[in-house]
Design a binder for these strands. Structure first.
Lengths: 233, 233
DNA sequence: CCCCTAACGCACTAACTGGTTACTTTCTTA
DNA sequence: TAAGAAAGTAACCAGTTAGTGCGTTAGGGG
């Protein structure tokens, strides 16, 4: 594409560019809406960064998919890296918020833990961008996340949530004592995350469809079992 | 760097380039060695692909680090993607070969399984490129690995190895029946892989040094415990 | 109704980047 | 030892890519 000075948006239904055509008056009044544009850019950026990573994503593609001008990206977000930082931060805030909404604190500990495992698995499945964004960020040694303060606050609540479940379980006698909530958090994430992020090489190595309905159900059951055995007395 | 037509290898000890200096006669006869050059290219490529991913790695940088000319890369490997494919295939063959050398088949099942968990963890730690290469390959939906036949052969042996351990353990009565060797393989990899690949974001989220000697030992112990509890009767 | 701010758009560029052309140098072997 | 095959090199190219300069347009406040 972009051969000569051709309009890169020529594919779109831009019937009115220079002359106001009397026919189709409501075609494109082109409303100005900063918030909506920002939001479209963030959505498109999330998808592109997830598909190609921070380095592989193309700013022009993001602009095109957001139906926005590239100039707007730089106007609102400053740079590609700043855009990535925002996308990443939003992704973390989103998953941590969803976790908090689970309201596990007044559930029976085993039930609470199982729900957390189910939620984590389900979240990764429904939000595949999350995993790829995190992978990309780790390739860059977390240089973007380092600058985020919000994420830290949310993370503390996340660890506290697991701590609470464990403490209550030990008190009730259903969980053994001495399990590190951080290690458990990491493990809950790991057994779902690894399976999904490496599903392509995994399908080849194990000569199995890892993404069929049955395979996914089987893995979830296996993961719940793994975590339950880990904390049981 | 690379400002004008300056020699990109100028930093190196290239004392003799045009005139044969009578002093230091054995300085640089510039021996021709195809195998050595290929090997240097592969080493440099592994490091670069691991550091920046397949997309982010730069062919010029690989050539420079390999102390080879970029043209040699194309001469020996055809394209950047073919070079990546070779590096990736080598990486898989390497880990699978090392696993086979563990000779777990005549060890007591629990001992064998623990050794496999220890080996996997140790291999990831000593070969951090492996993880990043696999991540990059999964970002590209395993398109390079799909073309490799060798890897499949090795993988079958890998699954068979775990199958053997499990079967023997069930027979001896130390392991419960019904554990899927593929799920177990995935889990053994997952709990080590995830911890290490996400160590940068992890350090921020959990406000902990995940790579200190103690932290690494603690995680390994936790992982062994997780796997043992998973298979125990 | 005017005007000024902010939203928006186009065309350009400087630096890269994978890949190639055309060449020189070294080694082997007939 | 002549010759040619293989190893190695430098300069170059065409296509990209993040980022910008500068002009246009909408719409809310005065």
């Amino acid at each position: 594409m972009n051969t000569a000075g051709a309009d890169p948006l020529a594919l779109e239904d831009m019937s009115v560019t220079t002359l106001a055509d009397p026919v189709e008056p409501a075609a494109k009044p082109r409303v100005r809406d900063a918030e909506a544009t920002k939001s479209r850019i963030l959505d498109a950026a999330k998808k592109e960064f997830a598909k190609s990573g921070m380095g592989g994503a193309r700013v022009d593609v993001i602009a095109e998919k957001a139906k926005a001008n590239k100039r707007m990206i730089y106007h609102y977000f400053g740079s590609k890296e700043d855009l990535f930082r925002t996308v990443l931060e939003n992704a973390y805030v989103d998953i941590r918020s969803a976790e908090q909404k689970l309201n596990l604190d007044h559930l029976e500990p085993r039930e609470a833990l199982e729900r957390l495992v189910r939620f984590t698995w389900g979240y990764y499945l429904k939000n595949p961008e999350f995993i790829t964004l995190v992978n990309s960020e780790n390739l860059h040694r977390a240089k973007h996340l380092k600058q985020s303060e919000v994420v830290k606050v949310y993370s503390r609540k996340f660890v506290a949530m697991m701590e609470n479940i464990l403490t209550r379980g030990v008190a009730t006698g259903v969980f053994r004592a001495g399990v590190d909530p951080v290690q458990l958090n990491i493990t809950v994430a790991a057994i779902g995350y690894y399976y999904l992020t490496n599903r392509f090489t995994g399908a080849i190595l194990f000569e199995r469809d890892l993404m069929s309905k049955e395979a996914l159900e089987e893995r979830l059951a296996f993961n719940i079992d793994t975590i339950m055995r880990l904390v049981s007395v």
